[in-house]
Simulated assay, not measured.
Amino acid sequence: MLDIVIEARKAAISEAIEVKRILPFRLRRMVGPFVFMDHAGPIANIPAQPSDMDVLPHPHIGLSTVSYLFGGQVTHRDSLGVEQIIRPGEVNWMTAGKGIAHSERFEDPSALNGGLEMIQTWVALPEKDEETNPAFNNYTVNQLPVFTDKGVWMRLIAGNAYGLSNHVKTNSPLFYLHVVLQPHTPFALPQEHTERALYIVKGRIEISGHTYSSGHMLVFTKEMDPLIVAKEHTSLMILGGEPLGERYIWWNFVSSRKERIEQAKEDWKQGRIILPPNDNHEFIPLPQDYGRPAGPPRPEPLS
């Protein structure tokens, strides 16, 4: 049976980008190791100054950010000196570990003529990897092979599912796919993972006589083997994996320990998490928390 249905909420991540925020949710903080999910766009009316959409340098600890584009182009810069443009169908996988800062810039107006749409998730790291050295990888379309069946198109972004795998480096058992279904096509979730969910990017699906539309995440119990039927041309992100245990989130920081969150706050205030060397003239300051202690996730982190 369904564990929960999550309706995306609105959140702003820059002056000109409002996103649909799916995870964390007050009644469901994680699905497998996935602790955060934002859906930006589709944004057809790009501002006259695309830089208004920029997400300025900001810090992360204890997680990997996973960015996947449907349309547009984003330039990533980070503390390691990496500068990487991400294009549709590619994945930027940044492991923050003990601490990294990065920015996301929109610097080529011509690349945004068709609009912007992207999904960003955060994958919590196992406790043994929370203090690992930061790392970054870009995976091109050719490294993320596409698989098709009758009425089904899917790209494996990371992990293992349906007997498929790729070379995207992960730290714990998980699966993450982009799936497109033609109208009336039946589809089933992979069964080998403990926690499983789907997010409807666009379109509608039917499960057990109930219809669900875009902007909703459906989380399933382990025992359920749902038959998913597309009511129209539908795009889904399906994800999950093995749970890692409780995680605390405050702003952009994720950790299994509350005290580590407090340390990260002080590290950012004191400049101990360095800015990207090729994007270090501005940054997002630590938000005020009005004395609120680190605790269960509050749904206000930036991407």
Rank of each mutant, 00 (worst) to 15 (best):
H233P: 01
L286I: 09
L63R: 12
G291E: 08
Q288T: 04
A161Y: 05
I43F: 10
T185P: 05
A124P: 06
Y248T: 01
H102K: 12
D289R: 12
T95R: 15
L164P: 07
L112S: 15
S213K: 12
L144N: 12
M94C: 14
E104S: 14
E262Q: 15
E259V: 00
Q182T: 05
V229T: 13
T234F: 03
V152A: 06
I284T: 14
W122Q: 11
H281V: 01
P33I: 03
K269H: 00
V180P: 02
L244C: 09
I100S: 11
R260M: 07
N252G: 04
E104C: 11
A294V: 02
P33S: 10
L112Y: 15
E127K: 10
E300A: 08
P109T: 12
A158G: 13
L156S: 07
S79E: 10
L218A: 06
G62M: 04
L239S: 09
P301E: 10
P134M: 04
V168W: 13
Q288N: 14
K258G: 03
E192D: 11
P47K: 09
G240W: 03
A188M: 06
G32V: 01
G41Y: 07
K202V: 00
H281Y: 05
K269P: 00
A44E: 13
G291K: 10
P50A: 08
N252R: 08
R21H: 02
S214M: 03
T170Y: 05
K269Q: 03
I207S: 02
G203S: 05
E232L: 00
